[in-house]
Design a protein around this nucleic acid. Structure first.
Lengths: 171, 171
DNA sequence: AGGAAATAGTTTATGCTTAAAACAATCGAC
DNA sequence: GTCGATTGTTTTAAGCATAAACTATTTCCT
């Protein structure tokens, strides 16, 4: 496949390009990290202060809000991109606090179905409204007409990374 | 400044716009989170597998790499955007493992100066090289000519959020 | 000089996060 | 039908993260 000893076309320019690409990719990663952690930190702080709640707990409720008939427990780790073991204590506490229920399935006794309670749904709606408003406040100065473009670019980043991850571990 | 009771121009359209803006902002946040956590998860996994190291430890070394004369300990939480208490055990372990030194200042006995050791610098360079290569691999499918534009947009997001955070807590 | 306020850093309590091992129930092959 | 593999979930050990309380030192005010 790779022909050996082909005279490399403009080698120094290629090296410089590769170097520049490297730096640009690193910059992209650092910016992603900075933006995400700034926003995440502030949202976490407000969740805590206003509702004495955490973001992972909110994320679980958000998934359940769109599923009136509940969700198989094993679906949550996949959707939230966290490990399964992580969710056990979080779901435990949400059940304890009365926001969700966890019922074993008759068909398969390994499986459990989690479902939001009326109380949970009410609380979630309130928090979701705040969440949206906080985000709007934090992003207020970013021009509206550039939102879609940025979202599109991030979709492409996401796709690129997913492809790289799904690529069979090289040779 | 704001004239009261001005007949609102096309009120329903404004409401619809606000709604759309809301959704676009939420989408932006979800994409940011998805991209960051995908990349972060993979980098963490590789740091662990290849070097038995964690990202927070790498981040500390990265800061110290650019400061041959060392850094005041208190500078680290600011640069890394983490809490001070968080760093104590991380720095402890890096000292224990011989990657950095921590020496009290004579001028002010509250202050400590952290500095990378020769061993630490050597290890860091190796890891930094892998880190760059991993990032290049993960982002390989994202077109090079769109990197700078995306970085610029994220800079603007970062600025917007920082401004929002620094704004005096409203009224 | 003496004491209050500020600063640097650590400790504690709580919770998130992962990887890996353990456990339990089901499924499949024979 | 039984045994081995697979699947769903929990447990465990280690580490990251924050907020809040605490210690030690310095600075500032009078």
């Amino acid at each position: 496949m790779a022909p050996a000893k082909e005279p490399s076309p403009a080698p120094s320019r290629n090296a410089a390009d590769a170097e520049a690409e490297y730096r640009a990719q690193t910059r992209l990663w650092l910016r992603l990290l900075a933006c995400t952690s700034m926003i995440e930190g502030e949202l976490r702080r407000r969740f805590r202060e206003e509702y004495d709640f955490t973001m992972p707990r909110f994320d679980v409720l958000a998934q359940l809000d769109r599923e009136p008939s509940g969700l198989v427990l094993g679906e949550l780790p996949k959707r939230l991109m966290v490990s399964a073991g992580n969710l056990t204590p979080i779901v435990d506490r949400l059940v304890e606090d009365g926001y969700i229920t966890r019922t074993p399935s008759h068909l398969d006794r390994r499986v459990q179905i989690v479902c939001m309670t009326v109380e949970g749904r009410k609380t979630f709606r309130r928090m979701a409204k705040s969440h949206g408003a906080w985000l709007a406040e934090l992003l207020a100065e970013f021009p509206v007409d550039r939102l879609d473009g940025l979202v599109g670019a991030l979709d492409d980043v996401k796709r690129a990374v997913r492809d790289a991850l799904q690529r069979p571990e090289r040779s």
